[in-house]
Design a protein around this nucleic acid. Structure first.
Lengths: 255, 255
DNA sequence: CGCCTGTTTGATCTACCTCAACTGCTGTGG
DNA sequence: CCACAGCAGTTGAGGTAGATCAAACAGGCG
C-alpha cells in the first residue's frame, strides 16, 4: 500500500517559500526572511496518492511538515479494526509532533496530497532556535486542541443527524476560510472524503451516514448532485441542526 | 453557583514557587530562577469548592493558571443541556488558552481545588518574553492534544464496558505518575468524580455507568468498597478490556 | 426519624448497527 | 457498442447496546 507515488502534477508547484500558497498561514507564517532561508534549505516536497500512508501508527517518524495541497486524515485503530478519525488536515495544517518520535496515529492521504516536509532532527533544531516558529506552532496546536474538543462533544453527545450537519458546517467553514468567501445558500461543497471516511470521522457506520444524507436531501436541506458534492440549500437550518452557537453574542466578562 | 469560596485549608500551602509541589511538572518547570521571580510576583492563589465554576463557556476570561491541588473538569454543553466532558485536569495541569480570550468550555472544580493564577495580560507578557515558558506550554498542549485524540477514539468507537475500563486505566496511570508508584493488582483508586461526571466523561448515561461498574464487580475485575473508591483486582484483564496497546513493542522506523 | 442526594436495579424503548440485497457508475474487453 | 465485472453508495429488515422512565436503596445530616 505504500508504493512510491507516481508523478502527480498539481496546478501549482512551489519552488521557493516566498511563492508558497500557504506561506502566510502555515507554521512558517511568522518567520523572518532570514529564518525562511533556513527553512528553504531544509524543506523538500513529496506527493502522495489517495489512500497512501504518510505516517503510520507506532512508527518512529523521521519527517514532519505542512500540507500544501490536498487533505490528510489522521486515524486511530483498535486491534479488532474499529477505526476513528482524530484529525482532518487541510492545506497549511501541520503534521507531526516535534519532540515525540512515535506517531500515535496513521496519517493517510484522503486526496492527492503534496507535503512540504522536514527531517525531524533538522526541524527540531530550527524550532529550538526560533521564537517565531515555536510561537506559531503553539498557536496551531491550540487551534487543533479546540477542534478536538468540539469534536469530542460531537462524538459523545450528538445524534447521527446532528453529527452529519455539524460535519457539513465544519467543512463549509474550512472551505470559506481557505477560499476566502462567505457561506451562502446554494453553495456547492466539495467533500474530500468517501462515505466510509465520513463514517470514521463521525463515529458512525457507512450505512447510517448514507441514510442521514438521504434524510437531509428529503428534508430539503441539501442537494446531492454527485457522491462527492453537497449543495447547501438551507444553511440556517443546517446550522440549527448542527446545534452550534454561531451567533456573536458577546457575553460579559466576570472577575 | 459562583459564590466566593470559603476559606479551605489544604494540608500544604505554598508561599513561594521554590517550595511548590508542582514546581518541576507545571508550566513553569523549565523556568530559570530569574523568570521564576517574575512569576512569583505575578501569581496569586485561589481556592474553589466542588462544583464551583472556575471559568465559564463563552466568558471573556481574565485569568489562567495551574492546578496546584484537586481535580478540574472541562465541559461543553449543548443548548438542550446534553453535556460532554472534554478535559480532566490534575495538579500541574494548566487551564486557559493564552491569546484566546473567550473560553470554549466550562471549567468546574470536581473536588476542592487550589489554583495558582495569573492575570491574562501579565501572563501573556511573560510568555512573550520567555523561551522556557513557551516551550513548556507547547509540550503540555501537545500532551493534551494526544489525550484528546485517544479520548475521541474512546467516544467514537468503544463500547460502554471498554469505556469504563479505559477510564479506570487512565485514572490509574495518572495516579501512578503523580504518586510515583506502579499500577498493581489490589491498588485502591480514589475516583474524584461522581457517577454523573463519569458519564459525562465517557459519553454515557449515569445508569449505564452504574451498570458497568456492577458488571466489572461481578466479573471480579474490581471491588467497590465505597462510591468513590475502586480497588483494581485484575489490572491485566482491565487493561485488556480497555483495548489499549500498552506493550512496548518498538516498531521499526520507515523512511 | 425522615429528608435529601447520589446510586443501583429493573423494564421497556429506540437510535443506530448489522446483515443483506440492490442500484448506478466506470472501466475493460469482446 | 454492448456485456459485465467491480466498486461505492443506497435502501431495507431485523437485532441490540445503550437510553429512557421508574422505582427501590443507601448513606449523611438536620
Amino acid at each position: 500500500m505504500v508504493t512510491e507515488p507516481t508523478a502527480i502534477e498539481f496546478t501549482w508547484k512551489p519552488h521557493c517559500c516566498a511563492d508558497c500558497a500557504i506561506r502566510h498561514r502555515a507554521v512558517c507564517s511568522y518567520s523572518t526572511p532570514a529564518e525562511l532561508a533556513l527553512l528553504e534549505k531544509a524543506k523538500f516536497y513529496k506527493d502522495f496518492e489517495p489512500g497512501q500512508e504518510i505516517v503510520s501508527e507506532g512508527e518512529h517518524t523521521q519527517v514532519l511538515g505542512s500540507v500544501i495541497d490536498g487533505v490528510v486524515a489522521l486515524q486511530k485503530t483498535l486491534e479488532d479494526g474499529r477505526r476513528q478519525m482524530v484529525g482532518l488536515l487541510f492545506p497549511s495544517d501541520f503534521i507531526g509532533r516535534p519532540l515525540r518520535p512515535v506517531a500515535p496515529y496513521d496519517a493517510v492521504a484522503a486526496t492527492r496530497v503534496r507535503m512540504c516536509l522536514f527531517h525531524r532532527r533538522e526541524f527540531e533544531d530550527l524550532l529550538r532556535g526560533s521564537e517565531q516558529l515555536k510561537h506559531r506552532l503553539l498557536e496551531m496546536t491550540l487551534d487543533e486542541l479546540d477542534a478536538a474538543q468540539e469534536w469530542m462533544l460531537l462524538l459523545g453527545r450528538k445524534t447521527a443527524a446532528e453529527k452529519l450537519a455539524s460535519f457539513l458546517m465544519i467543512l463549509s467553514r474550512r472551505a470559506a476560510v481557505l477560499e476566502n468567501r462567505p457561506i451562502l445558500d446554494g453553495m456547492a461543497l466539495q467533500i474530500p472524503l468517501g462515505r466510509e471516511a465520513i463514517a470514521e470521522y463521525l463515529g458512525l457506520t457507512i450505512e447510517t451516514v448514507s441514510r442521514q444524507f438521504s434524510t437531509l436531501r428529503r428534508k430539503g436541506l441539501v442537494d446531492l448532485p454527485d457522491k462527492r458534492t453537497v449543495a447547501l440549500t438551507n444553511v440556517a437550518a443546517l446550522q440549527q441542526l448542527a446545534g452550534e452557537d454561531f451567533d456573536d453574542t458577546a457575553s460579559d466578562a466576570v472577575a
